Amino acid sequence: MDKSNVEPLFEWVDHTTELIQKHNDEPYLDSLAVTMETLFFNDTAEDMDEILSRNLQNELAKIDLSSYASIDIRKAIQLAILKGMKDSTQQQHLMTPETVALIIGYLADQLLKGKESIRMFDPASGTGNLITTVLEQLGQDVAAFASEVDPTLIQLSVLNANLQKKQIEFFHQDSLRPFLLDPVDLVVADLPVGYYPDDIRANNFELKADSGHSYAHHLFIEQSMNYTKEAGYLILVIPDFLFDSDQSDKLHRYLQEHAHIVGVIRLPESAFKSKTNVKSILILQKKGEHTKTPKQPLLVQMPAFKNANGMADILGQMNAWFKTYENNK
């Protein structure tokens, strides 16, 4: 990471957020949203307390956002969000790690190489880090859509996209309810893991549980598939136990019927706090008239991200695999 530009911007964002936090006595992430809004409009809100407004005007005088590249803005905000999330311990509020988001961007780029324009959707967008990272890596004209139910997270993601000048249309809703959205070429998502509390809504899904609550991560796969075009791709961050759980037989049958498994990339254990949190990346293609299962799916065990030689070696192997895949389509 280029410290030179990211660090001063993060320090400014963090300092300003703490200022707001102390003044308003509210959580860091809520204060961060105020900081991002102030930075975006380069002004304070009209209804803001006078003392706070004056303090923020003083802070704004010290920063020129136009001198920062969007990648630096994304990274600085990511650091601030990570800091704020240390206080909020809910598992589903964790951000997709930077390296994982970059790998997903690489995979998306490889899979959609021939397309001039793409429609992309993230149904579990959180703070918007994954979708903005992928957008950065796609050269095409991309129409991007994202959905998030949590009000704080969607506020942060909208501001995050605005500050990076990324055009994304956001839906603030439960992502397992119907969308006013035409099918897309690509779904990227870091799947929320756990039970889905709304049994009545879950009844509309093939992957609903036979009894008790259904798994949200299963329903998200089906919902993502519903909004993917035929022959479109899904790149999903999944829990390691996805195919070994008590409801996995149903999932296997569903995927066999509707999708081709293009690949599974197991992420390094060192990237996660404990073995139980380890995740993989699942690449699916929705079945279409002319699609077929790859002769040899892409099966990769990622080395530790710090192992530069190992990473270079794996990327070389993946590039070679994609060449073969492209030729056999």
Rank of each mutant, 00 (worst) to 15 (best):
M225P: 00
L315N: 05
V188Q: 06
K115Q: 14
D141P: 01
Q296W: 08
V158N: 01
S245Y: 09
R253I: 06
D150R: 04
F41R: 13
L107E: 04
A216K: 12
D240F: 10
L79S: 10
I63Y: 09
Y106C: 04
A33D: 07
K75R: 13
L219A: 00
M1D: 09
A304T: 05
K306W: 05
F170W: 07
L267N: 06
K86P: 08
E11I: 04
D199F: 11
V142R: 01
K250L: 13
G212V: 14
K292W: 04
T228R: 11
T276L: 06
Y233C: 05
V278T: 13
D244G: 12
D43K: 08
L29R: 03
K279T: 08
E59H: 12
F241I: 02
T293W: 12
M36F: 13
M302C: 14
L315P: 01
G128W: 13
I238V: 06
K83Y: 00
I283D: 01
D141I: 05
Q285W: 10
D2F: 13
I238Y: 02
I168V: 13
L60D: 03
D249S: 10
P268G: 07
T38H: 00
I168W: 11
K286H: 06
T99V: 05
H172C: 09
L236Q: 02
V237Y: 09
I283G: 04
T293R: 15
G310C: 06
M95C: 02
E11R: 09
Q256L: 12
P123Q: 01
S67R: 12
S4C: 00
A76T: 14
L82K: 13
L284P: 02
M85L: 15
I77H: 02
E326W: 14
L94R: 15
P268K: 09
P8C: 10
I104W: 05
E18M: 05
L251K: 01
A69G: 09
L138I: 15
K62I: 00
D244S: 15
T276D: 05
I238T: 03
L180Y: 13
S211A: 11
E230N: 13
Q223C: 07
T44M: 08
S270D: 06
K329M: 10
E222L: 03
L135C: 03
E46D: 14
A61D: 13
D313T: 12
K279I: 07
